[in-house]
Design a protein around this nucleic acid. Structure first.
Lengths: 328, 328
DNA sequence: CTGAAAGCGCTTACAG
DNA sequence: CTGAAAGCGCTTACAG
């Protein structure tokens, strides 16, 4: 059986109180007692039950992480960095893949609350407001997504990124530039990429052409959209895709149709994950500062957990970077 | 404040016992009482504290997942599937990125034990035995990795995969085939890929040429190895890489050196993740059945959790599939 | 410097 | 069909 604090206590000839004290390094304990207790813990292979501790402390050091799917390289890398930083700060991470489905997300939020998480980091491309986030008063930080006007949002500087991408394509002489994005009705910060595209295009007196992919995680949806672009808009000579997988999908279809990239069509992606850049190093893309996004989200969350709600910025946009490959 | 079971009880005019009963659907309760309790729970926005429940039940429905890093597409996808299946079965997942560092892994195991996880799924490329796994008697399943002779291992059929890859290269006429793998000294099932390569080569009277990458997750290590291959073995005309990122790294270097693929050099990867196939669709590779690996690992783990140790297979190898791209 | 007691929020025998 | 009591494994005032 698992040893508990009482077992350690009797073996060391002290009270459970004392064992707890040496465990938590609280109060004064004679060195001799300490040694006896440590010895007993070792002999019994004792390790404390964090459930019991947390129950008493009303603090779990657990945070819930909701991402659409760690299969997507952006969220896979984001999850890695978030968990990694959390671990270094003594926080544990419960992973939730919402697949951007609102019902899943709601039940995850519920589950996390029941597990008494200290806070939640919610990342997703879209989804309307989730009531549960407001009902309970728990620390929440959103990544690239507006959840409510009290929940801080962290993300890349989407506007700057969209602007960079569009301007690059224009500067390379593209005349018909298509932008591929998620559904319009969603009011996410990622929409700023689209806004930037539209405004830059307008500034050059050009007509924006936007294609929407219903489900950014659905390969089939992506392909269908790409095919539609070629069919409906054969004069396309520039594409700003909302993520790298989408850009890759476009590039493949272009090759299949014998269109040369970047000669005939230039393509810029978004995200710039390590995986994408290893697998498709020629891709020109806008790199999101994933480690920085992770760090900022955690910093904000911890401030919330510690009760500093007042002075938190509602929106934090971190700088993006143009990765110059050879597709544009 | 958060409502607790006593609050619900007094508002519904019953005892906490009764509330607990309706919560758990245990014993006989009159419909009228049930309704009153549900009403009170709603009004108070009550949700049970799983910490307290778990403490009593000695069951958390929590499983620990240790992967090297979700940044790697293979483990990102594996994590997704594992969490997804777990969620559908009422299990929660605590994510741990070990980076294949033994000290990190040990402290994760410790943390997981303190959190009373019901079981652990440990995936990693390498690492010697971890004592902690044996010290405690807890349910553990390993993915592509030998932890001890009592811990079940799940993985792809590495031998078949290695054979397929090597035979494909031979059948395409390659004469100098290099295999890139992790450090030799590690006794992982992934080593079977290497064994298969060696045996097939021997069968054709060919000399195996193996290059080892120290840290499979280090891009720099990968590149260095790739460059060494070109420098030391310029006659190479076939490569079987131990994973797709490595294959991609080789392909990039080949392009940089003006070597045409597949004309001058043919390349086969391993893993066949969705991301890799979207970003580098021309890659020829051996696809691991990731969803099946996830499912099998969970099935085994749950059997262990439920005490069925006896009849569990020590090794489970799931079928791989050749993805015919155009790099070989 | 150390211990007995109460309590964190639940659940389950045991009674009735 | 329902409740009072004890206990899951800890920690923290409160005493001494």
């Amino acid at each position: 059986m698992k040893a508990k604090i009482g077992d350690v206590a009797s073996r060391a000839g002290v009270s459970p109180t004392t064992v707890s004290r040496v465990l938590n390094n609280r109060g004064y304990i004679s060195q001799e007692t300490k040694d006896r207790v440590y010895k007993a813990m070792n002999e019994l292979n004792y390790f404390p039950n964090d459930l019991a501790r947390s129950l008493f402390n009303k603090r779990t050091n657990l945070i819930g992480l909701i991402v659409p799917s760690t299969s997507n390289p952006f969220f896979g890398e984001l999850s890695f960095h978030i968990e990694n930083i959390c671990a270094s700060m003594g926080y544990k991470v419960m992973l939730c893949n919402s697949l951007n489905q609102i019902d899943k997300e709601e039940s995850y939020v519920n589950m996390l609350m029941r597990n008494q998480v200290d806070g939640i980091i919610a990342a997703a491309h879209y989804n309307r407001e989730i009531l549960s986030y407001n009902k309970q008063n728990i620390a929440v930080v959103a990544i690239d997504r507006y959840l409510s006007n009290t929940i801080p949002v962290v993300g890349s500087d989407n506007y700057a990124g969209g602007k960079m991408a569009t301007e690059l394509l224009l500067s390379r002489g593209c005349r018909t530039i298509v932008h591929i994005n998620g559904p319009l009705e969603l009011d996410t910060p990622a929409r700023l990429r689209r806004n930037a595209y539209e405004e830059v295009m307008a500034g050059y007196g050009k007509q924006p052409i936007i294609y929407e992919v219903n489900d950014l995680f659905n390969q089939e949806d992506q392909r269908t959209t790409v095919r539609r672009i070629f069919d409906e808009c054969p004069e396309v000579d520039g594409v700003f895709a909302s993520n790298d997988l989408q850009a890759a999908s476009f590039i493949s279809e272009a090759r299949r149709r014998g269109k040369s990239i970047p000669n005939e069509i230039k393509v810029v992606g978004y995200d710039g994950t390590e995986s994408a850049l290893m697998l498709l190093p020629e891709l020109t893309t806008i790199r999101q500062p994933i480690p920085l996004i992770a760090q900022s989200a955690i910093d904000l969350l911890i401030k919330e957990i510690e009760g500093q709600f007042g002075d938190l910025p509602h929106e934090t946009y971190l700088p993006v970077e143009l990765v110059e490959g050879s597709t544009a």
